[in-house]
Design a protein around this nucleic acid. Structure first.
Lengths: 206, 206
DNA sequence: CAATTGCGGCACTGGATAGTGCCGTATTAG
DNA sequence: CTAATACGGCACTATCCAGTGCCGCAATTG
């Protein structure tokens, strides 16, 4: 039992790269069209795979999509991927440029497409929460908390609510208003809402 | 040509109440299931009508849904339907109880269901914006502006952004997190975000 | 080599639903 | 009354798509 690829089973091995390519293709299609329009056919074609190869790995369409959501890349939202510029405002600004048109916009599109699934399957709520919603909120919570810790602002009484402002308003604008989440809009949120709601620290806060 | 119900045409008249019942049934179904699951069959059954009666009035499913969205009742969000309690905070609170489980929650469900349609038809964006998104924002904008006018707060530099905070965060929580938009959550937004972002008026503001 | 499993492609079944046609009935103008 | 239109119900077609079976080929074990 040195390597033992799959015990002593005969036969061709499953290509691990196929798994990744199929999941990525699923996310691609999800980011482009709606949940209802995501067909296995489309995903298979995009991944350069046959439909059987998909059904061999996942029970059905829902399982596939849940698996795809779970592997959404949110590494850029971890503490190590976040900017540390010295002030909260410039941290927010640093998140805008490289990040928005990259990871976050894609995540938003996926979130939008999956919303139809969310109303049906509780499992989808968990998957989306873990992979998309919570990482986003956590990132902003982290940035704000750090600014507070360094004495830039007083501890806000409702940190969780504050951390959800930017994800919520960006999502609302992108989906329901179908308007660009551009710099002008983000600056209005950052300056007019989030930073405005924070207070200078008093002596007692240090 | 005194009354002339429909010129001199013979034949049975279209029942104007049918129009209303069908549109209401469409909104009901839309509030309960997803856009993709809204079938003409279901709407017809709910309205006590035949499918033909629907197709006689609207081109197809999309036209029906667009028409239904356009007649969503947002009267409670007009200046006359909004509370006027003397302070902005109690105005917000007054909106919560009678309104939330009534009009606003229904509007939210409809908004959610239609999101799938939004990504496909630009016309749906217009309809939703006019009937749901804009009235909500306008209501909060009105309340805030009135509070500013009466000298309760200084004029905020980003009023539009501030007016969108509550609708955005409520929608985000209801859809993507599938959590109750309850009093605790609303209070956190009101006190921790919106009111916190407003400032006491200075002498120059009066 | 033989057996076994992965894989892509094709064809097929089954279910759901949009949209249409037809029929019998109800309503209304002339 | 007669013609024309609205209406509900039923049946029908067309389409789309999930899921499955089969075929031929590729890879891997023994």
């Amino acid at each position: 039992m040195t390597s033992a690829p799959t015990a002593g089973k005969a036969g061709r091995r499953r290509d691990p790269e196929k798994d990744a390519r199929i999941l990525q293709a699923t996310l691609d299609v999800l980011a482009e069209t709606d949940y209802a329009d995501v067909t296995i056919e489309l995903v298979a074609a995009r991944a350069g795979a046959g439909r059987h190869t998909i059904y061999r790995r996942w029970e059905g369409k829902d399982e596939l999509i849940l698996a795809a959501i779970a592997c959404t890349d949110s590494a850029d939202l971890g503490p190590d991927g976040l900017p540390d510029t010295g002030t909260l405002r410039s941290d927010f600004l640093a998140l805008l440029d490289p990040n928005w048109m990259g990871g976050s916009e894609r995540r938003l599109r996926i979130l939008s497409s999956v919303s139809a699934m969310i109303t049906r399957t509780p499992r989808a709520v968990d998957a989306v929460t873990r992979a998309i919603v919570e990482p986003s909120t956590a990132a902003y919570r982290f940035l704000i908390q750090r600014a507070v810790d360094r004495g830039e602002y007083a501890p806000p009484p409702h940190l969780d609510a504050l951390a959800q402002v930017i994800p919520s308003m960006a999502a609302y604008r992108a989906f329901f208003m179908q308007q660009a989440v551009d710099e002008e809009f983000m600056l209005a949120i950052i300056d007019g809402v989030v930073l405005a709601a924070l207070r200078e620290p008093s002596a007692a806060d240090r």
